[in-house]
């Protein structure tokens, strides 16, 4: 197995912090400089960014009025039995 290059590994480990804007400017510049010269890491960051966006969009749930009604009824029952 050919090991991942040290610079690539370093960026791979901090890719989420980079995408979340949680790194200092100088580290971001260092990463961006590396990305300009490394197509593999560019692909890595692009696919990660895409899957994050997809997870956020597709992760939303729609709560139906029935589910809401059921929860309210259950809460009312619980409060009534606690207070009696």
């Amino acid at each position: 197995m050919s090991p991942m290059k040290d610079e690539c590994k370093k960026d791979f480990e901090r890719m989420s912090e980079y995408l979340d804007g949680e790194l200092h400017d100088d580290i971001c510049r260092e990463i961006e400089n590396h990305l300009r010269h490394c197509p593999e890491c560019r692909k890595c960051v692009d696919s990660l960014r895409k899957s994050i966006e997809l997870s956020k969009k597709a992760g939303e749930e729609e709560i139906t009025p029935d589910m809401r009604k059921h929860l309210r009824a259950a809460l009312r029952d619980c409060f009534a039995s606690e207070q009696s």
């Binding site: 197995m1 090991p3 593999e40 890595c44 696919s47 895409k50 899957s51 997809l54």
Partner: peptide, 9 residues
Amino acid sequence: DGSDGKYEI
């Protein structure tokens, strides 16, 4: 191969 793989998202 030392890469982080190929992904189709």
